[in-house]
Design a protein around this nucleic acid. Structure first.
Lengths: 108, 108
DNA sequence: TGAATTGTTCGTATTTTTACGAATATATTT
DNA sequence: AAATATATTCGTAAAAATACGAACAATTCA
C-alpha cells in the first residue's frame, strides 16, 4: 500500500507550529501583538537571551511568515505579518476544531 | 535592566507548538482527531515514514501531552488526550486572538 | 512449542536548532 | 572624519530532532 504524503495544510500548519515552538518566539509574538511600537531593541529588552540570539529568532519568525521587518535607520521595526497571521489563525482554528473526542470513549 | 523570564503560558504554548512542528505529527493528530479506531498500524499506514520513526513521533506527541496510548495486546491504541487538547486549544485561541494589527498602520 | 503479528527500543548518521561573543554594516551625531 | 548607536551576520559549540534498519519484547495463533 502506498503511503500518503502530507497535505499542503499539514505542511503549512507544521511550519507555523515549528516557528512557535520556542518560548522566546512565543514571547516575541506576544509582545508584537500587543504593542504599537516594535523596534528590535524593545523586543530584545523583553527577552532573557543575547542580542544575536534574539535576532536569530526574529529571522525564523520572519522566514515562517509570521512577522515582517522594516528598516528605519539605524533601527528595525518589526510587526506581525497580518496576512499570514490570519492564515495561521485559521489553520489552527480548524485544526483544534476537528477533534471528535466527545463522541469517543477513549478520551472520555 | 533585568530581562524577563518566560511566562508559564508561553512555555506551555511553545511546548505544544513544538510538538506540532512536524508534518508527520500534524498528520497523526489529524488522523486521530477524526477516526474512531486508532491503532498504531492504522496510523503508520497513513504516514510516508518508517515504523520506528512513526513510533518516535507518537512518543513525542505523548510526551507533550497531546495524545495517550493504551496497550491492547498485541496492539496499541492511541487517542487524543482530551484534557491537554482542550488546554492547547484554549492557549492557541487566546494567542491568536490577541493581535491588535487592525489598529496599526504597520500591518495595514 | 514454534511461528507470526504488533510495536517499541537500540544504534547510528545526518541535519537542524539554540546560543553566545566577536566582528561587521549602516546611518547618525559630534 | 571619528565616534556612537543599532541590529545583523559570522564563527563556533553543544544539544536536539529526524530518520532508518535491525534487534527485541509481548502476545496470539497454529
Amino acid at each position: 500500500m502506498e503511503k500518503q504524503e502530507y497535505t499542503e495544510k499539514q505542511i503549512r500548519m507544521a511550519r507555523y507550529a515549528k516557528a512557535l515552538g520556542n518560548p522566546a518566539r512565543v514571547a516575541i509574538i506576544d509582545f508584537l501583538a500587543k504593542q504599537e511600537t516594535c523596534f528590535f531593541g524593545e523586543i530584545h529588552e523583553q527577552l532573557p537571551i543575547a542580542k544575536a540570539t534574539a535576532s536569530q529568532h526574529l529571522s525564523e519568525l520572519k522566514e515562517a511568515g509570521l512577522i515582517q521587518g522594516e528598516i528605519i535607520p539605524p533601527k528595525v521595526k518589526y510587526c506581525i505579518n497580518k496576512e499570514n497571521w490570519m492564515e495561521a489563525k485559521a489553520l489552527f482554528g480548524e485544526f483544534f476544531g476537528q477533534c471528535v473526542c466527545k463522541n469517543r470513549q477513549c478520551c472520555g
